[in-house]
Amino acid sequence: MEENIKVEDDIKVFGFWIYLMTDLIIFAVLFACFIVLRNSTFGGPSGHELFRMSSVLIETLALLTSSFTCSLAMFEIQQKRKNMATFWFAVTFALGMVFLFIEFSEFSELMDKGANWQRSAFLSAFFTLVGTHGLHISVGLLWIIIAIFRVWLRPLSAFNVCNIFRLVLFWHFLDLVWIFIFTVVYGTGHLL
C-alpha cells in the first residue's frame, strides 16, 4: 500500500464539491428569504428582542473548533494513526453535539415565549434557515459516527479515506455557512 494517500484530486471529491455548491445555493435562497422577510414580524417579536448573543457566541466557537479538530482528524488519517484520528473525530462529535444542544435549547426557549414558526413570516424564515443548518449538522454527526466505524472496520484504502475526506469537506462547509448565519441572522438582528 502506498505511503500517503492523496485524495484531494479524486474524481469523487470533485463531484462532491459540486454537490456542496448546490447546497450553498439552497442556503442562498433561505438567506434571501430571511433578508426579505426580516421585517415581516406581524406584530410579533423581532430578532433584537429574542436573540441571546452569549449562547450564540459559544455555539459559534464550538462549531469553529470542531471544524479545526475535524481537519486534525483528517491529518491523522493520512498519517495512518487510527487512535488519534478516532480521538479527534470524537472531539468533533462532542463539539457538534454541544452546538446542537445549544441550538435546541434556544429553539425551545423561543417556543416557550410563544415565538414559534407560526407566529410570523420572520420567525418562519428564521427557524427554517437555522433549522436547515442544524439538520445538516445532524447529518454530519451521523456521518462522523459512520466514519469512526469505517476507520476501525475497514482498511484505510483510497476508497475509504476519500469518503472520510468528503465528510471533512462537508463539516468545514457547514462552518462556512454558519459564519453568515452568525453575522446576518444574529449580528444584524441584534444591531437593528
Binding site: S40, T41, F42, Q118, R119, S120, A121, S124, F127, T128
Partner: peptide, 14 residues
C-alpha cells in the same frame, strides 16, 4: 405542513 408563513396571505407572508 408546519403552518409557516413564507407565502401565506397573513402573518407577514410575501
Amino acid at each position: 405542513f408546519f403552518g409557516m408563513h413564507f407565502f401565506t396571505t397573513g402573518f407577514g407572508g410575501n
